[in-house]
Design a protein around this nucleic acid. Structure first.
Lengths: 348, 348
DNA sequence: CATGAAATTGGAAGCGCTTCCAATTGTTCC
DNA sequence: GGAACAATTGGAAGCGCTTCCAATTTCATG
């Protein structure tokens, strides 16, 4: 169980460590024959580069901060934050970077100031901000002023103009969900939105409406409610939409938790799902598979987003100074529709 | 935003790096006056040790493997695995260790062989096994035979006798849940167990029965069903227990997902929760707060368990050879009862 | 074949830190 | 005061790897 080092590879391949390093890092000026010899030695020894050593030697000690939002002063008990951080820490480990996580109470009036102080304290190369912090332009500007790079997660258009951001194409996702339901014959829709300040999620509704408009269904025909991403708000909104005078045959919820609440409301109203009412969510968190029937939803790759955020910061830290004239990049990660039984059947 | 190094601290404190290192690592033979001077310099500079450099210099390059179980060949979409891994990666990062994760299909007859091959391939110092792999004695013995240290997560008594393990006190947890319900006046119970091969979770039922026995309620009076930890199995079992001839006032489920299914069954049967039937879960996953009413449950600190697993492996890798006569250590991490509205009121 | 240029390879320093062995300082005893 | 011992501190090597600059080899041209 002893670990091979670059010196072992060099000895076996009969070259210097410099050459091994060149091969492993895809640098030029290595003959193909030497490259093959090195790669064979790597394979034979089962060599794995030590990322810590690589990072240290490369003079690129990197340290990033991930800021979680919470309603309390303790860590959020949520899949969103766990998955995002898991992706981020995996990427950091791979790159030999340090990732420091902080939890900030989103209801604290001093939240922004706290984030600024922590970023300075931590002497970090960059900060990953989650909603709602990613949608706070003043905070984004203040971080830039203290020379701190930022990647915003699921941030709205205003933030996209200020800092690097990552998210799914929310409008396209909403459009895809509507298209799925339209293809099943639905023409009468309800929609439970998320919080108004969640700018990116508003795009879900916009895309949904755009797809309906293409099918000749005006926005005024949609029965919309506003929830706050919780099961309870989904239950309450759905009870209003699924009352005795119900006209809708499909209810789209802006996240899975609210959709789970809407499922309960439908069960309580003795409605068959999806025959009487199809119900769909967003995000593909574990909840979407836990409930009955399992939810049709849009998969948002949270882990991937965490990874990309770290990788983006690493690029920013390692590259040339940013071109001030170039706008920040909004990176779109792919979403996909996950059809499940909550919308599994075409309308009769 | 420049990072301080140990040399900066040494210069400011007027000592050698060796002395700074001694202070930071709590080594003896440093006068208190010198120690204070160093710590002040650390504070003033906001110095943070670089764990990569520490690990590399300390000649303790560590690499661990975490094996997730899945029903597919892709990564499980579950809070259990995410939280465990998050704890493990955080601890690994802090210790400057590498953590490699693998996903193994638990239904694959070659699963054990796959794990063995991967551990050897990865040249790792140790393996963290999750259920059901942690409950496979043959696998545990085979890993030991290839000189691979193991920490099992939530493993049953048989595994506890073979390898290092970590879990909550399942019996005490089951006992605490029963005591909570007994204190609210409940005397007629149902219980939805987990899968029979999940040895550790059987302890939940044992502890539950022990508490009832103390209150003079025999095991034969409990209506028990067996689920498989899924929402659907919870729904099905609960429908049998909550039928028109229902006699129970409290239903304890061996995990939160089944409890969420039981909640739906209760809602469908038009039962008030908790007035007509109290329903409780186990594990305190995000689901427990997402449903309505929120679930009383037992908090199992998954992240902590992941952390401790890595720390335990690091200790095993760094210490003296294990005493063959000493039994492996079963580490108990604290659980606690989380009372919520699903059992929030005393019986009328 | 000789020369110059380009391509390829290697020696060695050093990233931030730990640790081994040497050097220095302090304490105790006669 | 001197010797012996203990406590404290520091110099320097080196962890696994990258990278800068030097050395060597290869290629092209006259």
């Amino acid at each position: 169980m002893s670990k091979s080092t670059i010196d072992d590879v060099a000895a076996l391949a009969g070259v210097a460590r410099t050459t091994v390093s060149r091969v492993l890092n895809n640098q030029p000026n290595v003959r193909a024959e030497v490259r093959d010899k090195v790669l064979r030695a790597v394979e034979q020894l089962g060599f794995r580069v030590n990322p810590q050593a690589r990072q240290l030697a490369g003079k690129k000690a990197l340290r990033f901060v991930l800021v979680h939002a919470s309603d309390f002063d303790s860590e959020p008990n949520s899949y969103f934050s766990s998955a995002l951080e898991l992706g981020a820490t995996r990427a950091a480990a791979r790159l030999g970077a340090q990732l420091i996580t902080h939890v900030v109470n989103q209801n604290d009036p001093h939240a922004a100031r706290q984030i600024l102080a922590q970023a300075a304290d931590d002497q970090c190369n960059g900060v990953i901000l989650t909603p709602p912090f990613a949608d706070d332009p003043a905070l984004l500007r203040a971080l830039a002023a203290q020379d701190c790079r930022v990647v915003g997660i699921a941030a709205g258009p205003e933030s996209q103009a200020l800092v690097e951001t990552i998210g799914i194409d929310e409008e396209r996702a909403g459009h895809d969900m509507a298209a799925h339901l339209l293809a099943q014959g639905h023409r009468a829709f309800g929609f439970i939105k998320g919080p108004a300040q969640h700018r990116s999620a508003e795009g879900r509704y916009d895309g949904f409406l755009a797809a309906l408009a293409e099918a000749g269904i005006p926005a005024s025909a949609v029965q919309a409610e506003r929830g706050n991403f919780t099961f309870r708000s989904g239950l309450d909104c759905a009870q209003r939409l699924l009352g005795p005078d119900r006209t809708i045959t499909a209810l789209v919820c802006a996240n899975d938790d609210m959709a789970a609440g809407a499922l309960l409301a439908a069960h309580k109203a003795a409605l068959r799902i999806p025959q009487d009412i199809a119900i769909t969510g967003f995000d593909d968190t574990p909840v979407s598979e836990i409930v009955w029937p399992p939810l049709t939803t849009i998969h948002q790759p949270l882990r991937k987003m965490g990874e990309r955020a770290v990788e983006r910061l690493a690029q920013l830290a390692g590259g040339s100074p940013p071109d001030p004239a170039a706008p920040p990049l909004h990176e779109i990660v792919p979403h996909h529709l996950v059809p499940r039984d909550s919308s599994g059947m075409a309308l009769q």
